[in-house]
Design a protein around this nucleic acid. Structure first.
Lengths: 224, 224
DNA sequence: GAAATAGTGTCTATAAGACAGTATTTT
DNA sequence: AAAATACTGTCTTATAGACACTATTTC
């Protein structure tokens, strides 16, 4: 019964790969190299390989490695998009993932186009919907979690981290409250004696994410 | 290429159907009527029907109607579960949905077993994982949204709604704060002159959900 | 020392919770 | 009238934000 035509479904993954450049969120896109939508920009994606993938998360990681040449430490399932019309080849399911990386990780990537999320042209398939869902998720999670730390190359200073939050949320934050919250989240540790020098002002303390929080978010009960 | 064996994936949906009975969350389960896992309790689920379904959300609604004989006003995508081992028939993807209904909706259902979520036996496939994910999602969303109203038959009183929140969250809530929050969410409207009478005490005002919030949650910036 | 930004102390404003009082029903 | 619970007023406590002050660097 699973092999009857009635149940045949195209099964793919797509990855919304986000980073922060010049204070603005950018998404990584690739021009498609074949039909459908040949030449049109699309999210990195591909078929699930039932022979080799341990799950769709593994498919997404494999696709990122194959198409962008990178490994994203943070890769989270976003949502699943489906229907008869989203892919002209037939009824399809795409499990979408969201990856957040600091800009440094993208340096080894090849062929990716990084476009500011406010200014993305028409995309293949329903990738504009997938991108919109990812942005909404990232912004809403940034209101009460440590998610934006994944956009920051380590080590970083608190002012740097605050400006990352501000870029993602699109609003300025209160410095005292921000520092209180970061303290309270308990996921950062100061690197003793390591300061960011070189600027014409008091140097800032450098921090890194504690090991226990590298794979998992820290959530705040009350936001920020 | 999509039809090569390499890409063949079994595509299903499963629904975590939750309701509140005797002050405790219960999940609706069905004994499987054929292999694999014949006779074992499982979430209502089934194949995606590419010929008839407009998307996996429609598949989930169709499965609920077919297997439980009901239409759930609230049906939200939960997450997608996948891998080579979760279904003995082969590499599979299941898009899981979460439905919340008041107990009254389940009266017309046939054959469903409603079990308290703290006391569920071994389930077929990876349905225990799916259920755990659903419970975590429902509890976390209940902290800052109007989600639990879907468990309440309308119209309801504020003390009834508060006890629904308390049952889902597993903690008692401050009455004054709860009422302030419900006021602030702006999703309820009092039914003028309609009070819940019959009890040996002051009757409570009856409320219903405003039309604008029947399909969509109301979110609070600061929780509760 | 001037400029710039880091970091902190403290006051104010807002939101959450505690508590007690009043209101309205049944028995 | 007693009991029970609905509802509300108000005080206290906790949290968030504003603001100003000190600290430390480069030029």
């Amino acid at each position: 019964m699973p092999s009857t035509e009635q149940h045949h479904v195209i099964c793919t993954v797509d990855v919304v790969l986000l980073t922060l450049l010049h204070g603005a969120l950018h998404v990584a896109l690739l021009p498609r190299d074949k039909a459908p939508f040949a030449g049109v920009l699309a999210l990195p994606g591909g078929y699930v390989h039932a022979q080799e993938d341990a799950g769709t998360q593994a498919s997404a990681a494999r696709v990122l490695q194959a198409k962008a040449g990178l490994v994203s430490p943070y890769l989270e399932q976003l949502a699943t998009f489906s229907g008869p019309a989203r892919d002209p080849r037939g009824w399809s399911v795409s499990v979408a993932y969201c990856a957040l990386v600091p800009p440094s990780v993208l340096e080894q990537s090849r062929g990716l186009q990084l476009l500011p999320v406010q200014n993305v042209p028409a995309l293949a398939f329903d990738h504009a919907d997938i991108l919109a869902t990812a942005l909404e998720r990232v912004r809403s999670k940034s209101l009460y979690s440590s998610l934006p730390v994944h956009l920051c190359a380590q080590p970083f200073t608190l002012p740097q981290l605050q400006s990352v939050y501000e870029a993602v949320l699109g609003e300025t934050l209160n410095k005292v409250s921000f520092r209180r919250k970061m303290e309270e989240l308990g996921m950062l540790e100061a690197l003793p004696g390591q300061l960011q020098t070189g600027a014409a002002h008091r140097p800032a303390q450098l921090y890194r994410v504690r090991a226990a929080f590298r794979q998992q978010l820290s959530l705040s009960a009350r936001g920020l």
